[in-house]
């Protein structure tokens, strides 16, 4: 009967070192695969005699990339700012709008179908237009990142705020709670898990949007860098840029995941399984 009480917390004396070791122990298969993948890559170049201007070795990517690290880091910063700004503006606008659409039947009949059709449009197709309208600066990139982040957030927010289960809705009505009180005590927390689905989706899109915007027209950023070095037959540096873009994407996604764990520790997706 006392099922819950039999759960033991981790031993209090566990140091961070043993925590790291345990994490390593859990993910050894992944680490092995990861290392194996790059080893295979390193030696496959010799085995299949692939020229360096087609595909560089991982070791070359690291050493040549390191030689150009200042520029790479600055461009990572540029792309990060574009991604983060577009992402945050998208959330700041999409969540309240999603909320409004979920609660207004008028908006649900007008804007909502419009958004659903726009969701089918590849937002990236607008990128050249924004560049031509607004030039090479930061603003068109932020707008393009905004576009690729906005739709997953708004559609998930509509779903989140519009799908409180029937019994909780009745429960709220039976308490006579004011709309505000009901919103902050029940509707908002209940909607958060679904909102985070959109936030995570958008986090993945953000760096994609920034990179493509830079491809199309810019004079800095990792997307710009990758295009230039590829034109100069330097795939090693292009891979270094791709590697940093991956890190940037992981950092953004990881940050959202951390916030999620902090905001909705109670949700089923956040519970630790022992």
């Amino acid at each position: 009967m006392a099922m819950a009480s039999s759960e033991k917390a981790a031993p209090a004396g566990a140091s961070w070192l043993s925590a790291v070791l345990r994490a390593l122990g859990r993910s050894w298969a992944f680490i092995l695969f990861f290392v194996g993948f790059f080893l295979f890559w390193e030696y496959a170049i010799d085995i299949f005699s692939i020229p360096a201007y087609i595909l560089p070795r991982p070791s070359e990517i690291v050493t040549r990339g390191w030689a150009d690290i200042d520029r790479l880091l600055y461009y990572t910063y540029v792309t990060a700012v574009e991604s983060l700004l577009g992402y945050l503006v998208a959330i700041a606008i999409a969540v309240p709008l999603g909320l409004a659409i979920a609660f207004s039947s008028f908006l649900r009949r007008t804007i909502y179908p419009f958004f659903v059709s726009l969701e089918m449009t590849p937002k990236i197709a607008f990128a050249p237009l924004f560049i031509s309208w607004l030039g090479f600066g930061l603003l068109p990139k932020v707008i393009i990142v905004f576009l690729v982040c906005f739709f997953p957030v708004v559609l998930n927010a509509i779903l989140a705020f519009g799908s409180l289960n029937e019994e909780l809705t009745r429960f709220i009505r039976a308490t006579g709670a004011s709309p505000w009180r009901a919103f902050f005590k029940v509707r908002l927390p209940a909607a958060l898990p679904q909102c985070f689905v959109g936030f995570k989706y958008a986090a993945i899109n953000a760096t994609v949007g920034a990179t493509i915007a830079e491809f199309i027209g810019s004079d800095q950023g990792l997307g710009f860098y990758i295009q230039i070095v590829t034109g100069n037959m330097r795939p090693d540096l292009a891979f270094a840029g791709i590697f940093l873009l991956t890190l940037l994407g992981l950092a953004l996604f990881g940050a959202v995941t951390l916030v999620e764990r902090w905001v909705i520790p109670w949700h089923i997706s956040q519970r630790r399984t022992h």
Binding site: N165, E167, R173
Partner: peptide
């Protein structure tokens, strides 16, 4: 209109997970 003076228990409980 919804009666607020009573106590109701629904088929699926209204416990919130947070």
């Amino acid at each position: 209109e919804p009666q607020t003076s009573i106590g109701i228990m629904f088929q699926d409980n209204t416990l919130v997970p947070w």
